[in-house]
Amino acid sequence: MSVDGMSAIVFGGASGLGEAAARRLAADGAQVVVADLAAERAEAVAGEIGGRAVATDVTDPAAVEAAVAAAHAADGGLRIAVVSAGLGTPAKLVGRDGATPLDAFARVIEVNLLGTINALRVAAAAMAGNEPDARGERGLLVATASIAAYEGQVGQVAYAASKGGVVGLTLPIARELAPRGIRLVTIAPGLFDTPLLAGLPQAARDSLAGTVPFPARLGEPEEYASLVAYAAANQMLNGTVIRLDGALRMAPR
């Protein structure tokens, strides 16, 4: 699928991996809707890339429907949807005072897993009404998991479970949507230089970077964005999860 001239939406597009994806898609010629709960930052990013911002909570069906409608209103309809909104709030199963309150896990799973399903279902429904292109394609969905889905660390109970859910939904959704000419590719990043890590002391950042076999550094959001662009270009990528981690396998802590 050629990105040029296509309508795209990036959930979580106001910062980090999502922002990089929004900027790359716009640079490749797409009309991009930046859908993010951080409305002011979304407006800033959209203004810089010539796109449109829509304040969006991925757990809110009405908000997601409004964001998708804004992207689908473009000529040709919505063709590319990237879901990178998420939370990484840590919580152990058992804390100093006993069992950790269930709410500490519920919100992470609600945003990361149910929010992803919410965004994918609405975007896919819009794409299903598109006219297929010359190769029979109506749209591309890109979900974001994490290598924590495979090697979750201590304190990542909800995060690893939520990202494992995103990994698990990839194939069944791709199989379901295949007759409609809609693909789903999931990216599972390792350690990336995003706002989540930006607040750490430099020594801690260097230590994390040193755990990556090669290249021994934090991933750059633009590398995630380039994989989004490649997924659009390569039609055989479908129903798969791609680790983007420099061969990193996370230690227990």
Rank of each mutant, 00 (worst) to 15 (best):
A62D: 14
S7Q: 07
G18I: 05
A126C: 10
Q153E: 13
A232D: 03
L237Q: 14
L191S: 11
I242D: 07
G246P: 13
A174G: 00
R79Y: 05
E223K: 11
A148H: 03
E65Q: 13
I49K: 10
A104S: 15
P201M: 11
G51H: 10
A233I: 12
Q235Y: 15
A35K: 01
V212K: 01
A124D: 04
V241E: 02
L197K: 02
V45S: 06
R138T: 08
A178E: 14
R253S: 09
A232V: 04
G152E: 01
A225Q: 10
D103A: 15
A73Q: 12
G210D: 15
A145I: 05
L237R: 11
R249H: 11
G5E: 03
L25E: 04
A74H: 15
G210P: 08
A188P: 12
R205E: 14
L102Q: 14
V111C: 08
A14W: 02
R107H: 12
A26L: 05
V167C: 08
L141K: 00
A203C: 02
P189A: 09
P132T: 05
V58D: 07
G152C: 04
A229R: 13
G199F: 06
G139A: 06
A46D: 06
V166T: 02
L227V: 13
L237H: 13
A174I: 06
D103W: 05
A198S: 13
R183D: 04
L196S: 12
L237W: 15
A69C: 06
L102E: 12
R243P: 08
A44P: 06
P195E: 10
K92I: 07
A178G: 12
R24S: 10
A62C: 03
V83W: 00
G168E: 08
A161R: 02
E220N: 12
G168C: 08
E65N: 08
A20M: 06
G139E: 01
D57I: 06
A203M: 06
R253L: 12
G88K: 00
E220H: 15
G13I: 00
G165N: 14
I9S: 00
D193R: 07
V10Q: 01
E131Q: 13
V111A: 08
Y159S: 00
R243F: 09
R96Q: 14
G47H: 09
R205T: 12
A229G: 09
V83N: 07
I173F: 11
G115D: 11
